Simulated scan of single mutants.
Amino acid sequence: MSDPELATRLGAMIRDVPGYPQPGVVFKDITPLLADHDGFTAVVQALADAGRDDAGRPVVDKVVGMEARGFILAAPVALALGAGFVPVRKAGKLPRETHAVGYALEYGEATLEIHQDAIAPGERVLVVDDVLATGGTLAATRQLVAACGGTVVAAAVLMELAFLPGREAAGDLPLTALLVVDGA
């Protein structure tokens, strides 16, 4: 499936939910996509490509997914790449010693945490999430990976909300977005 074909298919399977989780926000519901085996498989493969070199070989040691929908996408991407999966969770959800970073969301503030030993020094990391909006979650996750001694080599997202500054926050990090949404 080509990139435009995949984007068209994704656009048809992702539903807008206005006013959720609060007025003024349009939530992107990915559950119809997740329920479609062929669509979900295509997404996992396309996201995994961000962790491969031009010859198709994996170039990452770990795949990091952020709570909660990032988990759903990142875990099968890690399997596809033969890499480990590392969850980045909301504050207080991990049972052992963590690194923590506070950050701004599109509609609030939050803190993310990672186990201190989740990524070994020098490991290469692909960050996978469902949506790139303001870039706060991505920036916080990069800080957490760095605190462990790892290096984020690329990021891949299902959707990029191009009307928000997420791509700017990514800086020079290679970023793959399977679907670019231009308007709210």
Rank of each mutant, 00 (worst) to 15 (best):
A42C: 02
R142N: 01
L178N: 01
E123G: 06
T111Q: 01
P21D: 14
I72Q: 11
V17T: 01
Y103T: 08
Q45C: 02
A50C: 11
T137I: 10
L73E: 09
V25Q: 10
R167Y: 13
G136A: 07
K28G: 02
G39L: 08
I72L: 14
L126Q: 00
D129M: 10
A184D: 15
A83C: 10
R167D: 04
G92H: 02
R69E: 06
V125D: 14
A42T: 06
H115D: 03
G82C: 05
P87I: 12
L73T: 10
T151E: 14
A48N: 00
R9D: 12
E113R: 06
D130T: 11
V88I: 11
G150C: 05
G149A: 04
I119Y: 01
L173A: 00
V86T: 03
L173M: 09
K93T: 04
D29P: 12
T141R: 13
P23L: 03
V152W: 04
L126Y: 05
A55S: 15
A75L: 12
L79N: 04
P32D: 01
L73M: 03
L79Q: 13
A68M: 14
R96H: 14
G102Y: 01
G135E: 12
L144F: 15
A100P: 03
A140M: 15
L10G: 00
V77N: 10
A156R: 14
G70M: 10
V64L: 05
V77D: 01
I72D: 13
T31G: 13
V26F: 05
T176A: 15
A162H: 05
L132D: 00
L179I: 05
G149K: 02
D130Y: 06
M66G: 08
H115M: 05
L10E: 03
T176F: 13
A154L: 06
V157E: 14
G102S: 12
T41R: 14
E109R: 15
G150F: 09
A68Q: 10
V181I: 13
G136S: 12
H37G: 10
A156F: 09
V60F: 10
A110P: 03
A110I: 08
A42E: 15
A140F: 04
G136P: 13
P121W: 06
V145S: 11
L34M: 12
L158F: 03
